[in-house]
Design a protein around this nucleic acid. Structure first.
Lengths: 337, 337
DNA sequence: GTGAAAGCGCTAACAC
DNA sequence: GTGTTAGCGCTTTCAC
């Protein structure tokens, strides 16, 4: 960078001066709007000046002037997502970048309603994609007023006021049960976690129950906390029964791990005495004995699906898909069930 | 909200009009700068108008005018962090909020160098905290030019040009080994993972080795991939030995889980035949048999430590702490070792 | 206590 | 093809 330290950041005027052109020419070169004609030689001079100055156009100024922005705001979810978060964001970012949009994640996980909306609206993003539970009517109104072009909710419950991507975890439960049935199981159990993942677990249970009913199979609901001894009690209960279930859908991989541990602790083998299926397909599924069969979600589809929904919303098209985000759960069959 | 749908977002001028005051008064009420005197009654009228209009001040305009911003930019780390990421961000956000700063996370995990810097600089953030590996000299220069007040690197290697928070994982390994020694173990092994976490594992190994040397104990280095069969081979190897290690530091919790699985598969008990210690203190540590002893990091301290470092940097003070971020690893003793 | 006015960096009409 | 200019929404002197 050739220029001496000056106190202030270089502006497009500085670039224009160095390149010996006017500011509008600089703007034309950098944004190439339809109908802007700049000679190749001028263009090169401008770009050279940009490099020399280490110039980066100010997004605030650009946004102020054009009334537009390339920012899609995604408030960090309150719901713990673990690995899934990084995967989803990767795919989402990539899909947005193909449309020259930038993903910005707001760090505050707890703000909701009007307060949250004000903080989000202040940034004047092009679009906001937030958990349905954090979008109140007042908040949506604030966002709309602030000129946010697409407001998109996601979560388990549908938001009454805005298009919602429903991550359908019912299907995850259904897939697990159908897989177990295809393996010959007729009497099964489903763990339903309490705690932070209760909502998710409930939904997976609903899908599992429906699948079992449709097939005329028996499915026992077992509510458990994230406590090892709870699970142990459940297993001991089964051991007392004359006709215990032969397979269990654990609701998620942590619970699957836990119940396999408990089963072995009680002297049962997996999948011999009891088949176990988890969900989320965490990395450890491949690392243990027996390898854990698990229902995976298709994050790739989720990220690009969200991006597609946003762009179609911004183009003024209504959001369809019967409001269900494509999660495409699929069973990754390993050894445990 | 009383006002009819108008095409454009409400501005401070709209608020002023509704409240029957001037725009500067609105600004005084909203920002209460030192030496601004507004009557309680006027103040109330303004706030009422703000609510009625659903007004949210434009951060771009504010930033443009004041040359300032309340945004701390944190590019999403390339390094997979899982649970740790959500925890760290929670603490970081909270610590920043106490200073009226906002955390914004840039979604692109892959951009680095000048390209990344330009994208970050465009937002005109107050501060940037990025992985050391993504900050090149040219990139740092672009950020500085753009008026970013604090540039802060983090990671395992120190950045030559900017203050770096080094998350010292050597200490994590050392803690694990010291714990095992205190339990009477003299002959130990340390798993060193390849793959995405190789750097982390190498560092933990270094700390572990030093701790073992200091105590005059033997520590075998075992390089392994994220492959179950690799681990099985290692265990079988130990079973051939006349004097195998009595304890293993697994490098992380996934590996701890894997090796416990493998040990049992081979007929050994944990911790009877072999003690196992993991690291990261993932939730499943409490859920399995035996419960997993693991080295936890103190995310709370990490988040507020990062926030403190940033504010001291912005105040122009040099960053000290011998450049080591306080990770404060501590052993959570459970049943496995 | 309050208002008028300038100007932050940029884009987009419009003039040449 | 390139330059001139107005103004986006806000803060901040400076008058009153």
């Amino acid at each position: 960078m050739t220029l001496p330290e000056s106190g202030k950041p270089p502006t497009s005027a500085d670039v224009a001066r160095v390149a010996g052109v006017s500011r509008s020419t600089v703007s034309y070169v950098l944004n190439s709007p339809p109908g802007a004609r700049v000679s190749a030689e001028t263009r090169e001079r401008v770009l050279k000046a940009v490099r020399e100055l280490g110039y980066a156009p100010s997004a605030p100024a650009r946004s102020l002037r054009s009334g537009n922005s390339d920012v899609v705001l995604f408030p960090l979810p309150l719901q713990p997502m673990g690995q899934l978060l990084e995967q989803f964001i990767d795919e989402f970012t990539e899909a947005l970048r193909r449309q020259d949009l930038n993903l910005l994640i707001h760090g505050d996980r707890y703000a909701r309603g009007v307060d949250a909306a004000r903080a989000w609206a202040a940034l004047r993003p092009l679009a906001v994609m937030a958990e349905a539970a954090r979008l109140t009517d007042g908040g949506v109104e604030v966002l709309r007023r602030a000129g946010v072009r697409a407001i998109f909710a996601w979560g388990r419950e549908e938001h009454p006021g805005v298009p919602t991507a429903i991550f359908d975890n019912r299907d995850t439960g259904a897939q697990a049960i159908r897989h177990l049935i295809s393996r010959g199981h007729r009497k099964m159990a489903c763990l339903v976690p309490s705690g932070p993942l209760a909502g998710l677990g409930q939904e997976r249970w609903e899908g599992a129950r429906t699948a079992a009913e449709d097939a005329g199979c028996s499915l026992e609901r077992v509510d458990v906390g994230y406590i090892r001894e709870d699970i142990l009690a459940v297993v001991r209960g089964w051991q007392q029964q004359t006709d215990p279930p032969t397979a269990v859908f654990a609701g998620n991989d942590d619970f699957a791990l836990m119940i396999i541990s408990a089963l072995r602790e009680c002297g049962w083998t997996v999948p011999g005495d009891m088949a176990v299926v988890g969900a989320d397909d965490l990395p450890f599924c491949d690392l243990v004995w027996p390898r854990l069969t698990s229902v995976a979600m298709h994050t790739r589809t989720m990220g690009s699906g969200a991006a597609d929904a946003l762009t179609s919303l911004m183009a003024g098209k209504p959001y369809k898909h019967r409001n269900h985000m494509v999660v495409h759960p699929r069973v990754v069959v390993r050894e445990s069930g």
